[in-house]
């Protein structure tokens, strides 16, 4: 029975993806892209990967969706009507043939590989040593901690790169103020935020804590917090600080800094870089996760909203 559900789900995923990719209107495309992201989350649930499902929906569909929608709305205001210029037929056919061939080959190759878990039998015996049960957190924070460390710096680097684009003119401005222009809408958003924010905080804290045993973790919690932050800025409850303000920088750096510091401490105390002294693994992992959650929340929120722009609505928001 569940196979039928899987196939139905896959068909829906392919349908939404197809529409998202080829529909004419930009906003429709992004709307379907978000739907596609949520369906993917379901697919990950069907695969039994709850961690990834959380991450996919919160980060993949959520934050990316918000970033794309905001980008599109600003492009509209800047007069770029996101028109879909028709590429010549010849190149379309050519790339269609190329991609079809590629897909068929890839699908064929994929079918030759028998699905089955690869390393869970290797991961399982090592987990008790770390004092955590959730294997994914174990892999993320301990066995592949080096990847995760570098990845947090990628996030930080992306933010710095985005913010280094701001021309001097709009240096003083906070990230594009997102406050609703229509006053009553703002009240609605503000009320919603007042209700949502505490719940989001609790959920995020819970997610990080439970992450070591049950599905959850820093990234998912960070994404939830980021969502809350974005909604808060919509409602005008919170004004996100500029990147060169100390608050923003501390929030952004606390995660990578703690991770790096603990890694180096491990090396300094005679062990090796990113080796947790035995007995302290769980506490260190949880501290790293909380620090990461804060940084990821701040990072994703600032990234989704984008660097300050000499924007018309910026000006308007200031004018009032």
């Amino acid at each position: 029975m569940s196979a039928a559900f899987d196939i139905l789900l896959c068909l829906m995923i392919l349908a939404t993806a197809g529409i998202a990719l080829f529909v004419r209107g930009a906003f429709a495309a992004i709307a379907f892209f978000i739907a596609f992201g949520n369906l993917l989350g379901l697919a990950w649930l069907a695969l039994g990967a709850v961690n990834v499902a959380l991450a996919e929906i919160a980060v993949g569909a959520g934050v990316t969706g918000v970033a794309l929608i905001l980008a599109c709305s600003r492009l509209f205001e800047l007069g770029d009507n996101l028109a879909d210029v028709r590429t010549p037929l010849a190149s379309r056919l050519g790339s269609a043939a190329l991609c079809l061939g590629f897909t068929v080959m890839l699908a064929g190759v994929v079918l030759t590989i028998p699905p089955g878990d690869r390393l869970s039998k290797v991961v399982a015996p090592l987990l008790p040593g770390l004092g955590i049960e959730n294997p994914v957190t174990g892999v993320l924070l301990a066995f592949r901690g080096y990847d995760t460390l570098l990845e947090t710096f990628v996030l930080l680097g992306a933010l710095v790169a985005a913010w280094s684009l701001t021309p001097d003119a709009s240096r003083r401005l906070p990230p594009t103020t997102m406050v609703m222009t229509d006053p009553t809408s703002r009240i609605v958003a503000e009320a919603f935020t007042r209700l949502l924010a505490p719940a989001a905080l609790i959920i995020a804290a819970y997610l990080v804590w439970v992450g070591s045993d049950l599905p959850g973790g820093a990234f998912q919690a960070g994404a939830v917090l980021a969502g809350a932050l974005v909604v808060a800025t919509l409602g005008g409850v919170v004004v996100l600080p500029r990147l060169d303000s100390l608050a923003a920088r501390i929030a952004l750096m606390v995660g990578p800094l703690t991770f790096l510091a603990i890694g180096l401490a491990g090396a300094a105390l005679g062990g090796r870089f990113l080796a947790y002294p035995d007995g302290l693994e769980k506490t260190l992992i949880v501290t790293i996760e909380y620090a990461l959650a804060i940084s990821i929340a701040a990072g994703l929120a600032l990234l989704a909203i984008g660097p300050p722009q000499p924007m018309p609505n910026n000006a308007r928001a200031d004018a009032r």
Binding site: M180, D182, S185, V188, A189, F192, L195, L196
Partner: peptide, 12 residues
């Protein structure tokens, strides 16, 4: 709650 909020904003 969220559908209520979104409905409000969209309608406006």
């Amino acid at each position: 709650i969220s559908s209520g909020m979104t409905a409000q904003l969209l309608a406006r």
